[in-house]
Amino acid sequence: MAITQLSVFLENKPGKLYEVVKRISEAGINLRAMTIAEVRDFGILRIIVSDAKKAMEVLEDDHIITTTEVVSAVMEDKAGALYDILQALESANVNIEYMYAYTGEVTGSANVVFRVDDIEGAEAQLREAGVQVL
């Protein structure tokens, strides 16, 4: 099952990131994962939160915010773990647009988030390779 990632468009100006995080925090939403992709003038803050719908509500009024379905897979803390996952996706010919990782709920594991062109194909392939998909 794919999970919902929020992408917030941020101008590259002081205080912009702070404001978003503050808003989420004040709404009592847990920020599970975040990454920023940035170029010179702007950035895109990609976040996974405990309540995507609520986070949308507190941000959408004055932010450019989009939702994206992403694949999240559990990766064990051992050599070659990412390689196995990527190999599974590679064999299914899934194109990865970007990825990032965050600490998993189970000690000794991490969650890897993939934005891919074929979510169902990616998830099926990962399961077949014995990877746990969130």
Partner: peptide, 15 residues
């Protein structure tokens, strides 16, 4: 000011 519904989450699209 951009229309949020037209903005993708990919840097390349925005560029």
């Amino acid at each position: 000011e951009a229309d949020p519904s037209k903005i993708s989450d990919k840097i390349a699209d925005i560029q």
